[in-house]
């Protein structure tokens, strides 16, 4: 299948400062891709180039096969964009604003009402908010209006710059559900600082640091790639407290990281294996049963995205620092 977005050697300079440098990535149709990175990593610059707002210093961007340098008008017609901070006119009503944007997006007059209503419904704005002034809406509803605007006319690609910024957990959940609904039918690229949020909504992650891509894969693959060990939390009844001593006799390498006494001779041990494969888990449980430790709880501790993000960005920082030196 042809990629929805193809980026090749994309570079952007602001004077002498390099904002992004030789970015290469592809986004498949229907995928939801999360752009992650610390402040100043180049996320917004990349997104603004992708939607034709600013030109790149060098490199190529193709949206559904169309080069952005020459076909920017056609690309803008098939794209929805929500800028950072979601600027909206406060003195317009939601429905009125969306109708205006639909007209500007050159949606045929006969489809205008349906399109606006569809966007309102998708973003759950059709019940109360549609007739309200934008200025009177809460931050969450304003974000929804921004997303509804991006959804107008069912664009093939939607780019959202920090859609969940400043929202409370309930509102974030709402936006996440909305993004999930779009999975498979629209290509969505969005940037965020809220890591669990990105992981929950995205099929793919692109992590940027200092204008370069440091990771580009699914969160699962990235974990496998960057975390060579797996942690398990084992709660057992350990009468003699010999579990830690027996670890060295295990048929595979186990490393005790933490032990917490839970009372009533119950202990919770955090152990680490050097393998990330499934068999390590079954071998560990078998070994516990073979040694007759009454198992109360067995939890596989997945490394969270935050650890991954910190690991990747700190690696990149160190690499860049050493290059400078």
């Amino acid at each position: 299948m042809a990629s929805a977005i193809v980026v090749r050697d994309l570079t952007k300079h602001y004077g002498r400062k390099v904002a992004i440098q030789k970015l290469n990535f592809e986004v498949q149709p229907g995928h939801i891709v999360g752009f992650l990175g610390p402040n100043g990593a180049g996320k917004s610059t990349t997104l603004r180039i992708l939607c034709g707002l600013i030109p790149a210093s060098s490199g190529y961007v193709y949206i559904h096969g169309l080069p952005i340098t020459t076909q920017v008008k056609q690309i803008k017609q098939s794209m929805g964009y929500m800028p950072e901070n979601n600027p909206l006119p406060e003195d317009m009503r939601v429905e009125e604003y969306l109708k205006l944007r639909a007209r500007i997006k050159q949606i045929p007059h006969r489809l205008l009402k349906t399109c606006v209503w569809d966007a309102l419904e998708r973003c759950d704005l059709h019940r109360i908010a549609a007739k309200k002034m934008i200025g009177a809406l809460s931050k969450g509803f304003k974000q929804r209006v921004g997303i509804a605007e991006a959804l107008l006319g069912q664009p093939k690609v939607i780019i959202l710059d920090e859609p969940t910024i400043g929202l409370d957990p309930h509102q974030i959940l709402g936006i996440r559900d909305l993004l999930k609904k779009l999975r498979g039918e629209t290509t969505v690229v969005f940037s965020s600082h809220i890591l669990p949020e990105v992981e929950a909504a995205c099929t793919h992650l692109i992590i940027l640091n200092q204008g370069q891509i440091v990771a580009n894969d699914t969160s699962e693959n990235l974990r496998k790639q960057y975390f060579r060990t797996t942690r398990y939390e084992v709660t057992i009844v350990d009468k003699d407290g010999h579990f830690s001593e027996h670890l060295s006799h295990a048929p595979f390498k186990l490393c005790l990281k933490k032990s917490i006494a839970q009372g009533d001779q119950r202990m919770t041990y955090t152990v680490e294996t050097e393998s990330t494969e499934e068999w390590a888990e079954s071998q560990l449980t078998r070994w516990i049963f073979e040694n007759n430790w009454p198992l109360i709880q067995f939890v596989k501790k997945e490394p969270d995205l935050e650890s991954l993000f910190l690991k990747l960005t700190s690696v990149a920082w160190k690499k860049m620092d050493s290059e400078r030196l």
Partner: peptide, 14 residues
């Protein structure tokens, strides 16, 4: 100042 211009220029408006 409000960022409305950027949002408007992301549409097919010249």
């Amino acid at each position: 100042r409000l960022g409305l211009l950027e949002s408007l220029l992301s549409t097919p408006v010249s």
